[in-house]
């Protein structure tokens, strides 16, 4: 199994090296049935997102029509064709969170960040997505930022939460995507 490599800010990795890793992943999965989704997952792990040249390489490498690769990428919200921010904010809009104000939380987040769902702030700090249920229904509404889940979020608390991340990161600059 090819080592799963996340995006790393500590040392810059050349683009050539990223593509070399992609080729290794494709080579390993080429002959296996059902390879498309795992290869896409790993490619997103390597590049941070799935740019067009990467998807075309996967299409050719796995001998899958490009329309099918694109269809799978577009179907799963986990996949992104745009560079993502350093922190991924997911707003739960499962039933419980929805009825307890999840939608309002999402509106406030959109307004504070100045982006829509699926977009990334211009400083590459935050990306915003919608999710369905973290299993925190008793403490709805919930959002998650990276692996941290925030429960019983109130619209008035949102600025405070975002500020924490900005302060924490002010020491280290946001990741630069290739």
């Amino acid at each position: 199994m090819v080592e799963k490599l996340g995006p790393c800010a500590c040392q810059p990795i050349s683009e050539d090296e990223l593509y070399l890793r992609l080729e290794q992943i494709i080579a390993e999965y080429q002959a296996k049935p059902g390879a498309l989704i795992p290869v896409l997952q790993m490619a997103q792990g390597v590049f941070g997102y799935l740019p067009e040249p990467v998807l075309k390489k996967i299409s050719l490498g796995l001998n899958k029509p490009y329309s099918e690769v694109a269809g799978v990428v577009g179907f799963y919200s986990f996949f992104s064709t745009h560079p993502r921010g350093k922190h991924m904010i997911r707003v739960c809009l499962g039933t419980a969170c929805y009825v307890r104000g999840g939608k309002r939380i999402l509106e406030v987040l959109k307004q504070k960040l100045g982006i829509d769902v699926g977009e990334t702030t211009s400083d590459r700090m935050f990306s915003l997505e919608v999710a369905r249920c973290f299993g925190a229904c008793g403490l709805a509404p919930a959002i998650s930022i990276d692996d941290e889940v925030y429960q019983r979020v109130k619209p008035t608390k949102i600025q405070e939460i975002l500020d924490q991340y900005r302060q924490k990161d002010s020491a280290e600059p946001a990741r630069k995507d290739k």
């Binding site: 899958k64 029509p65 329309s67 099918e68 694109a70 577009g74 179907f75």
Partner: peptide, 8 residues
């Protein structure tokens, strides 16, 4: 393979 379902 020109056509495939896109989005959801």
């Amino acid at each position: 393979g020109g056509l495939f379902p896109q989005h959801r």
